[in-house]
Amino acid sequence: MCTNGINTGQFEQMVDQIDDHIKLERRWAHTLGHMAGDAGFPTVSEKMHAAQALLDDVRALLDEAKDALEDDAQASSNVTVSLV
């Protein structure tokens, strides 16, 4: 569905692709955090787990963006765009 020049279905798929990428990076941050902790690098482990938490926040914001996309598309569906 296109709304005001935005293909909302494609837009949502692109957000999902970003989420998939962040999910992979989160998994790596988690793994590296444990590796660092097991190797006796507590500060590195702490920082990696903090990065993991921030990536969790990013994923939550992406979910919110997808929800907002639906809301915004409905709210702006009454807008008419004219060529000049």
Rank of each mutant, 00 (worst) to 15 (best):
Q13L: 10
Q13Y: 05
M14T: 06
M14H: 05
M14N: 11
V15Y: 03
D16Y: 07
Q17N: 13
Q17G: 12
Q17C: 12
I18H: 08
I18F: 10
I18C: 08
I18R: 00
D19A: 14
D19W: 03
D20R: 14
H21V: 02
H21M: 14
H21Q: 15
I22G: 02
I22L: 06
K23Y: 06
K23Q: 15
L24C: 14
L24F: 09
E25A: 15
R26M: 09
R27E: 12
R27I: 10
W28K: 13
W28E: 15
A29T: 02
H30C: 07
H30D: 09
T31D: 15
L32D: 09
L32N: 05
G33N: 07
G33P: 07
H34Y: 06
H34D: 06
M35V: 14
M35A: 13
A36V: 02
A36Y: 07
A36T: 01
G37D: 11
G37V: 08
G37T: 12
D38G: 14
D38P: 07
D38N: 14
D38H: 15
A39K: 07
G40L: 00
G40Q: 01
T43L: 04
V44Q: 08
V44F: 03
V44A: 13
V44E: 02
S45H: 07
S45C: 07
S45W: 00
S45V: 07
E46L: 02
E46Q: 05
K47W: 00
K47M: 06
K47D: 03
M48Q: 03
M48R: 02
H49W: 05
H49N: 12
A50K: 09
A51K: 02
A51H: 08
A51W: 00
A51R: 00
Q52K: 12
Q52C: 04
Q52P: 01
A53F: 06
L54P: 05
L54E: 15
L54D: 13
V58I: 10
R59M: 11
R59C: 08
R59V: 02
A60M: 02
A60L: 13
A60G: 04
A60I: 02
L61Q: 10
L61E: 15
L61F: 10
L61N: 11
L62D: 04
D63C: 09
A65T: 14
A65L: 08
A65Y: 03
K66H: 06
D67S: 14
D67I: 03
D67N: 13
A68E: 08
A68S: 13
A68M: 10
E70D: 12
E70A: 15
E70P: 04
E70Q: 12
E70Y: 13
D71M: 03
D71S: 06
D71L: 08
D72L: 08
D72E: 10
Q74L: 13
Q74K: 14
Q74T: 07
A75C: 05
S76T: 09
S76P: 00
